[in-house]
């Protein structure tokens, strides 16, 4: 049952993220990226099978973890993805802020320094 709920939640996360990323404002795109990252983490968590059993820790004096332990691998994958996503998000945040300061633009339509809008026609001789 909980899987269906989580799947629906992932869907809601993705919907919100895609809506925000399609926006022209950098800050909304950033929020979209953050939500998308969280949605993906939740997706991996759900796909690693959800169980409400024991944590995957070998207790003292044991050789293997107790019967029915939760799958630790998705958690390791998610932790890695969170760390990387966090680093990327920080970078993009600072970059967006710098771009806002320097280019005076929070709108991707007005960010045309690298691709000038009134680009000259290509050379016509030859």
């Amino acid at each position: 049952m909980i899987e269906q709920v989580l799947a629906a939640l992932v869907g809601i996360f993705f919907t919100a993220a895609i809506y925000l990323i399609l926006s022209k404002a950098i800050i909304r795109m950033l929020l979209g990226i953050a939500i998308l990252g969280n949605g993906v983490n939740l997706l991996i968590f759900t796909l690693g099978r959800v169980s409400r059993e024991v944590p995957p820790i070998v207790s003292d004096g044991e050789l293997i973890p107790a019967e029915g332990f939760a799958n630790p691998l998705p958690q390791a994958l998610i932790l890695t993805a969170i760390v990387i996503g966090f680093a990327m998000f920080t970078f993009l945040l600072v970059l967006g802020y710098r771009a806002y300061q320097e280019l005076n633009a929070d709108n991707t339509d007005t960010m045309r320094v690298a691709e000038p809008k009134d680009a000259p026609r290509p050379p016509l001789s030859y």
Partner: peptide
């Protein structure tokens, strides 16, 4: 840190991060 680089990096950064996601 020239302006044109910031402009390019925003587009590069967002779209590539989206790709890895």
């Amino acid at each position: 840190g020239r302006k044109i680089q910031l402009d390019g990096a925003v587009k590069y950064g967002f779209l590539n991060f989206l790709a890895t996601t």
